[in-house]
Design a protein around this nucleic acid. Sequence first.
DNA 1: CTCAAGAGATGACATCGTCAACTGAAACTC
DNA 2: GAGTTTCAGTTGACGATGTCATCTCTTGAG
Lengths: 195, 195
Amino acid sequence: MISRAESAAATRRALLDAAAELLDSGGLDAVTLRAVGARAGVTRGAPYRHFLDKESLLIAVGTRAWDTLGDRMQALRAEPGLSAAEKIRGGLLALIDVGRFQPHLYKLMFSNPPGDPTALARAAQRSQTEFLAVVADLVGEQEARRYAALLISSANGIAGLQASGQLADPKWGGVSAEDLTDTLVDMIAGKGRHA
Amino acid sequence: MISRAESAAATRRALLDAAAELLDSGGLDAVTLRAVGARAGVTRGAPYRHFLDKESLLIAVGTRAWDTLGDRMQALRAEPGLSAAEKIRGGLLALIDVGRFQPHLYKLMFSNPPGDPTALARAAQRSQTEFLAVVADLVGEQEARRYAALLISSANGIAGLQASGQLADPKWGGVSAEDLTDTLVDMIAGKGRHA
DNA sequence: CTCAAGAGATGACATCGTCAACTGAAACTC
DNA sequence: GAGTTTCAGTTGACGATGTCATCTCTTGAG
C-alpha cells in the first residue's frame, strides 16, 4: 500500500530523473516541462505541484548532482591507504568526469540561475569543503584555501574545455584531462613538499 | 551617400551590437530576436536577412568576441619590454576579465552550439595560438602544449568560478582571480626555470 | 460518512523562433 | 531613361513553450 505522500515523493523523483535524462541526452533545449512530464508519466502541469517553476526544477537537478558528488568526495577523503595527492587527484577527476560524460549536467551545476544566483553555489559547498580538507592535508591549513581554489578552478576549466571538445584539438598535442590533472597535482605536491 | 551594401552591413553590425548589449545586461534569456531587432531599429524578421537563424547570430557574437580577444593577445605578444611570464599573466587576465565583466558573453564564447559544435572553437583558434607562442617562449616548444592547455584551462576555470560568483565565498579566504593567476604563473615559471 | 486538502488534468494565454508572402527602393540591363 | 531584377525589411501566421486558473478525483482526518 502506498500512501499519498509516498506517491507524491515518487512523482517528484520521477520528474527529477526525467529532467536529468533529457538533459543528458538532448541538452538543455530538450528539457521542456511537457517532455519531462511525459517521461515521468504525468502531464505538463504536474511539475508545478512539486516545483515553483521550471528553473526550480533545474536547480533541484543540479543540487542533486552536487550532493552525489559530495558523497563521492566524502568517501574518497575517508578512504584509507590513499595519499593526500592521490585523494586530490581522485577528487579532481571525479569532477572532471562529470564534465566529460555529462557535459550538459556539468554546465547546469556551474550555472547561476537568474532567480536565485546563489542556489547552486550553496549546493556545491559540501563537495568543496571536503576537497578543501584533503588539500589541507597536503599543503597545510595556511595555504589550503589558495591552492584548493586554484585546483578547483583548474579542474573546472579542464572539464569545461573537454566538455566543449576543445581539448581534442591537435594544437594541444593530444594532451588528455588526466595528463593535465597529473601535471597540476605534481606541481602542487611539489610546492607542498618544499613548504 | 550610402550604398545598399553599406546600409546592409551597418544593419548587420547594429544587430550584433544589439545582441551583445542585451546579452550583457540581461543574459541569454533577454536576447530575443524581437528585442534584438527593436534595439537595432528593425523588426523581428530582419535578422533573417543577415543570419541563418538565432543560433547563427549568437555564434557571430561569440566569434566577434574571440576576434577582439585575439587582437589583444597578438598585441600583447608583440609588446616589447615585457617578460614571457608577464605576457602570460596579461593574456590570462585578458581572458579572465571577460569572464568577470561580461559573464554572459564569456559563457557564450565557451558554449558549443548544437548546430555547429565546432564554430566557436574555430573562432578561438587565433587567441589560443598566440597564447601558445608566448608560453613556448617561457617553457620551450617541447612542453608548451601541455602547459598552455593547463594555463588556459585554469584561466577558464578561474573565470568560470568568478562568473558564477563562487570565488567570492569566504571559504576561499578572499582569494582573488589575480591571486590565483599569479600563483599559477609562478608555478609554471618555476618549472620553466628549472627545465 | 462527511469533507477539506492536495495531486494531477485540462483549457487558455502571452511569448518565442521561424516561415511564407508581400512591399518598396536601389542597382542593373538595354 | 524605361523596364526589370534583386534584396533588405515588414507583416501575418503557425507550432511550441512556460505559466496561470480552473476543474476533477482520490486520499486521509474528524
